[in-house]
């Protein structure tokens, strides 16, 4: 997608450069003609731009404008619920730049702290094992540790 917008912009830039050069040449020619024919015609014609250069300029401006607009980065929703829903649904694919990479300020899932919490532990079983270990005087440490690992 990005090469389309880039090539449109470059094409418009070429058109604009050509129009600019044509206009400059035209004005140079006009001033030359005015200086040579100053004696014959007392009021030299005002150097109006030829219509084709004017049209080329406007078209080139619009073409570059189209390329630049297509080259902008995708917007992000500003409401938290809309934005978080988009992150949840699309993940990194929803935040890809116009250059095709995930943008640098992508922070990811705002609820990831909920998804990485530690698993539950059976506190009653551990308490019972500890009581057994205390009752046996702490002798069978290795055995109770083995039982705890089961």
């Amino acid at each position: 997608m990005t090469w389309i917008s880039k090539s449109i912009t470059v094409f418009g830039g070429l058109l604009l450069a050509h129009a600019c050069y044509s206009a400059q040449e035209h004005s140079a020619l006009q001033s030359l003609r005015a200086s040579t024919a100053a004696l014959t015609s007392p009021s030299p014609a005002v150097a109006t731009l030829p219509i084709d250069i004017a049209v080329e300029t406007v078209v080139a401006t619009l073409v570059i404008l189209l390329g630049l607009v297509l080259n902008t980065r995708p917007l992000r929703p500003i409401q938290w619920r809309v934005w978080a829903g988009k992150v949840e649904r699309e993940g990194e694919e929803g935040f890809i730049d116009s250059s095709g990479e995930v943008s640098r300020d992508y922070i990811g899932n705002p609820f990831r702290f909920l998804e990485t919490r530690p698993g539950f532990i059976d506190i009653r079983k551990q308490r019972k094992e500890f009581a057994d270990w205390v009752k046996n005087g702490g002798e069978r440490l290795g055995a109770s540790a083995g039982a705890g690992a089961q």
């Binding site: 401006t61 917007l75 992000r76 929703p77 500003i78 409401q79 619920r81």
Partner: peptide
């Protein structure tokens, strides 16, 4: 309904970049 500041900054910066670029072009 809270607002994500990062997105607000990102969107307005995208628009301002485009506008200052195209203004020079015009």
């Amino acid at each position: 309904s809270p607002v994500v500041q990062d997105s607000v900054v990102h969107n307005s910066r995208t628009l301002i970049n485009l506008q200052s670029l195209t203004a020079s072009l015009f």
